[in-house]
Design a protein around this nucleic acid. Structure first.
Lengths: 255, 255
DNA sequence: GCGATCAGCGGCACG
DNA sequence: CGTGCCGTTGATCGC
């Protein structure tokens, strides 16, 4: 158990030093901002980071029960309690943690690096696809990537072998309603702008059954994106569409 | 600095006991699952919870750089390093944290409660609105809430004073493209099902400019949701629509 | 278990 | 700073 006045000093030092601070103790929490919340008294872990983010963790779930980002943090003693306050404007938000006691307080000097290298994001897949769209459909040629319009940014614009403009919406995981309506929104926009008809392809590893129904009702197409994660620095991911497309051709030949 | 074999024992005890475990030390991290990632060696804080969630935190941002949920966690000593592994299936994911050293290790017995009371969610607003929709428009009457259809669940179905069916999509914050297309999707569904025309109202505190354009192009309507957070137990929030509606009437009378 | 949607979404990149 | 959108989205609730 740590004395509250000692804790106050340590927290203030830690904030000044942009340390990572860990607080464990019995507290209750009030939040007022984009919503309001109350957390009744209980033992919690509070994590304060050098960039002014603060999170109250219970012993379940990866997400904190309460949190704030980009705050100014201060603390004070009040009627035998240690109050940690986080504050920010735009939007106006306030988080108040009232500690009845503090079981443990630690602060760590940790530099605020950002060196995660992640592979397999949509952006990675998009870049690989731009090199060759024929795995989606023979003769399909990329025209533009991340084309920005007034009502959204579409992932890929291409042209098929018959000269039709093709709008492609790419999803790295199973596509849902949102992906379908996104694609439709981009298509309507381009069609209105250029006064032409377009084809729309939703490219994803799979699609929800009801979303596929909607897609087909709207006259759009689904194409399976068959990719493999490669934890390799040179190659962010490997798209296996070509092989599966060849398989499809083989199946056709059998008929 | 904590000896790695001692750390191993402590971690294993903590996991068995479903404690909250804090590890601070120099480590590198590999993740393979829905994507792949590598985090180069550095000082990090690892938070393990009783429900099998695990998160690696750097000294910035509220979100962890690496994480996993619902895992089985184990640890082992290997060539002078302590390896913490989290594992799960469906989807298959693996997280490996290799500690070169451990500066600090703590475990805390914290019960896995879930007693956050939050007010001002969309659900709260929906419930209040269902009691009286006249604040949106005189004569508007609620028919159904959270009606589930084949292609989505719409927030509120109502009937206006002329007997038209009105589909309402509610957003607790500024509405965007997604909200507009959601509303449209629900409308088209109901229209097809019942073979009638419907009105669509997007109800939100505000709406993005371009989203409003899209909304209007589609022939849908926007209604301002003027609400106030009340950190009060009896009343989850207070909708001020009535007053603003009266103001609108006053403004009309002035013309 | 999957489906659908909300979230105090957070965070990022671009204009 | 706002806009748009992805995310290893997470988490909840309903079927």
């Amino acid at each position: 158990m740590i004395k509250l006045d000692k804790a106050k000093t340590e927290i203030e030092k830690g904030i000044l030093n942009q340390d990572m601070i860990i607080l464990v103790g019995d507290c209750f929490v009030d939040y007022l901002g984009r919503a309001t919340s109350k957390l009744t008294k209980g033992k919690r872990l509070v994590l304060i980071k050098g960039d002014g983010s603060i999170a109250i963790h219970q012993n379940r779930l990866v997400k904190p029960t309460n949190y704030m980002v980009n705050t100014r943090i201060g603390c004070e003693l009040n009627e035998g309690a240690l109050i940690v306050k986080a504050h920010k404007q735009k939007p106006a938000e306030k988080l108040t943690i009232s500690f009845e006691n503090i079981h443990d307080l630690k602060r760590y000097e940790i530099e605020a690096t950002n060196d995660l290298r992640l592979s397999g994001s949509e952006k990675d897949l998009n870049e690989i696809l731009m090199q060759d769209l024929s795995m989606i459909e023979p003769g399909l040629k990329a025209i533009n990537q991340q084309q920005c319009f007034r009502k959204g940014i579409c992932d890929i614009i291409a042209e098929d072998k018959n000269g039709n403009l093709v709008i492609i919406e790419l999803k790295r995981r199973q596509a849902d309603f949102a992906g379908v309506t996104q694609l439709q929104r981009y298509m309507l926009q381009v069609e209105k702008l250029k006064n032409i008809k377009t084809r729309g392809i939703l490219l994803a590893p799979s699609i929800r059954k009801n979303a596929l129904e909607l897609l087909e009702e709207l006259g759009l197409e689904f194409a399976k994106l068959d990719f493999e994660l490669t934890p390799n620095d040179k190659q962010k991911a490997k798209i296996k569409g070509l092989e599966s497309k060849q398989q499809t051709i083989m199946e056709h030949l059998k008929k």
